[in-house]
């Protein structure tokens, strides 16, 4: 089980801030494929991956990152701090 978190418009499109996901996906990309296959709202949120950033266990990374031993994956748009 992995905690999957969503922020900003990704959260709004999917309709929840976090969920526990049962998965054996080896990478973030495979987890995204699994989520997209679930429902239209996931497909809508992940339609353009170039607009989404990912963090694995609170570290920015890429979609090819492995999920072995990972507790938390977060998806969000490019950050707008400052």
């Amino acid at each position: 089980m992995i905690d999957v978190l969503y922020f900003a418009w990704v959260r709004e499109r999917i309709g929840l801030p976090r969920e526990r996901v049962e998965t054996d996906a080896p990478t973030v990309a495979a987890l995204v494929d699994q989520l997209r296959a679930r429902e239209d709202r996931y497909e809508a949120a992940f339609a353009d991956l170039s607009a989404i950033r990912v963090a694995v266990d609170q570290q920015l990374t890429g979609f090819d990152a492995p999920l072995t031993g990972v507790r938390e994956v977060a998806f969000f748009p490019p950050m707008t701090g400052g």
Binding site: F76, P78, T80
Partner: peptide, 29 residues
Amino acid sequence: MDYLKSRAPFWKKETTRDGTSWVAARDED
């Protein structure tokens, strides 16, 4: 400042008289 703009996990949403919208990241940043 440069890193806070683009690498700290904050997201801004504006409410104006026209409605609400997420602030897009700027290429310059």
